[in-house]
Design a protein around this nucleic acid. Structure first.
Length: 208
DNA sequence: CCCTGATTCGC
DNA sequence: GCGAATCAGG
């Protein structure tokens, strides 16, 4: 199939939105990711900056060379300062004693409720989120268990087959993605799907 | 092994 | 111009 205006438009839009070449290829159909990448390059938008006005000025390519007063012909006064006197102040305190059998809620300290409620990913079709989000205790417990065995993959390691459930606070070091095998077609693993998608019957007559 | 984009080059 | 093959990398 040829690159019609419409298809090119879709390509441009998705690419600028950060979609990967393979994702775009699937969306368009009849093309491979190679084709998409090739087209992207031909269109000259390999740089995903749809609008980057404030481009950092390149250092002057010209060599000023004032030649005003050069005492030494080739004296290169390099003090050679030791750049790294530091010895890695990395002392992460990571020891978490997990021997607290459900003292209170089923939410461990590493998990923020916030991340449980808004697992939104760019470029991903947003699932219809029921305004009222009631997660069953069972599902929550399962999630907690899963998060202990999660692969803790980084952003780069996310694929369409990995669970994209964020764990921890993105603003801290303790942030990663679940990474377990995702359910077919779903962005999350089984446990996280169960808390992400409510069967729409999470609210029974709670009163009786 | 899964994936990503970049590049090459015959068509 | 196109994109498969290949490359380089996470």
């Amino acid at each position: 199939m040829a690159w019609t205006d419409e298809r090119v438009e879709t390509l441009k839009r998705m690419w600028s939105e950060g979609a990967s070449a393979s994702t775009i290829a699937k969306e368009l159909g009849s093309v491979t990711r190679n084709a998409v990448i090739g087209k992207v390059h031909r269109l000259g938008l390999s740089n995903r900056s749809a609008d980057e006005a404030p481009k950092a000025e390149e250092p002057a390519p010209e060599a000023p060379a004032p030649e005003t007063a050069t005492p030494e012909s080739d004296a290169a006064p390099e003090p050679e300062v030791a750049a790294e006197p530091e010895a890695e102040p990395e002392s992460e305190i990571e020891e978490e004693d997990e021997d607290e059998p459900r003292t209170m809620a089923a939410v461990p300290q590493g998990v923020s409720i916030t991340s449980l409620r808004k697992p939104l990913m760019a470029g991903q079709p947003l699932p219809p989120q029921p305004s009222a989000n009631e997660i069953s205790p069972e599902a929550l417990a399962k999630v907690n268990a899963v998060e202990k065995t999660a692969k803790k993959i980084s952003l780069m390691e996310l694929t369409e087959r990995t669970c994209k459930w964020p764990i921890g606070d993105p603003a801290t070091e303790k942030f990663w993605f679940c990474g377990l095998p995702s359910q077919a077609g779903k962005p999350y693993c089984e446990a996280h799907v169960s808390v992400a998608f409510q069967p729409m019957s999470s609210r029974r007559d709670r009163r009786r």
